[in-house]
Design a protein around this nucleic acid. Sequence first.
DNA 1: CGGCGTTTTGAGAGAGCTCAACATCGGTGG
DNA 2: CCACCGATGTTGAGCTCTCTCAAAACGCCG
Lengths: 201, 201
Amino acid sequence: MADQDWLPAAVRAAGIDRRLKAGQALFRLGDRTRGLHQVMHGRVRLVRVDQAGREAVLHVAAAGDTIAEASLFSPTYHCDAIAASDAVVRAYPKAVILAALERDPKIARAFMAMLARQIMSLRTRLEQRNIHSARDRVRHYLALNVGADGKTITLTGTVKDLAVELGLTHEALYRTLADMAVEGEIERLKGKIRRRVRPPV
Amino acid sequence: MADQDWLPAAVRAAGIDRRLKAGQALFRLGDRTRGLHQVMHGRVRLVRVDQAGREAVLHVAAAGDTIAEASLFSPTYHCDAIAASDAVVRAYPKAVILAALERDPKIARAFMAMLARQIMSLRTRLEQRNIHSARDRVRHYLALNVGADGKTITLTGTVKDLAVELGLTHEALYRTLADMAVEGEIERLKGKIRRRVRPPV
DNA sequence: CGGCGTTTTGAGAGAGCTCAACATCGGTGG
DNA sequence: CCACCGATGTTGAGCTCTCTCAAAACGCCG
């Protein structure tokens, strides 16, 4: 989640930085929870791997985001955290965070609000996965990620990454984007997609 | 979430009951949030409806569960709540809840833990939706919902309901269950499914 | 320039969806 | 008590869409 502002200065001071290479694991499912992590630089994927070896991306944390807030209340992590790029992650000891939450209702409230936002975000993603058509799934994504102008979407990574996030194969996504571009529903720019409000007939 | 125990007696006393008929809406996406709801009797579905009219079930709350915890921090609801059966729902005013959370760190902590559990549960469902094969999706569900004996799963509703929760058509689910039963992977009982550890060759 | 990952296009197959028909069960009312 | 009715449960057949496997063009970086 982007809003890490609830972290009080006293807690931030207790953070310990750790450097990760792309592909390196910050923690694995089942590991004992050490505390709260905050991405300082780079990006970290939260994933679960099923027995077929398929990766389900639960969340992609960018610089500023915190990771594993839910694990503060759990003895072990419930997913893998893998660096999506070279990254720097700051760890805050569990006890320090919990103490801060106990002490200051304002901090606690901000934390709860952040958890609540995560719940809403996860529900939105669950809704997205209920959409069967690749095109509609893309439309859903675009609608939720338009910028302030209401028509430009900035891609956070490669199209391949987006495919994983959307739960599509990259081929299917490429084809869908190509079709939509041909039909004038979208324009494809460098690292961006522009939605056209009215596709030309 | 099943754990509503964090609700202090003072707050519970402020609850106002409301009776819903099957299919009736408790609230709709976009409505102004009034507070926290707790299902006293019956079941309530949290759903989002896409433009194609397809319903994505985000959560099914049973008796004792609370609803819309996340909406305490949001001005409007972000999904629909529809009674899945005749139901009784108790509403707690937002201000009362927030005051209790502010006052008592223990309550706050219990609330945070519940939000955290919801996040984990949603992530598990997201993982489930990443499984393509109907059979593997059923297996995933069964594995996560076995009872204490490690092999019996109690169905909470109809098979049709389960199909919706799994994101499958009811036909596909019926067929999958039938196949699994024929091959001896499961046994189907009245309202229950029993997993067989070793399918006979 | 060579290598690697992304982007792109092609062809085929499989799995679930859709439409359709029918069986089954529980409740309701004559 | 039985006929009726609606919803659930069940099975069939065809189709569509995405996945899978394959191959090639492109772009970037050492």
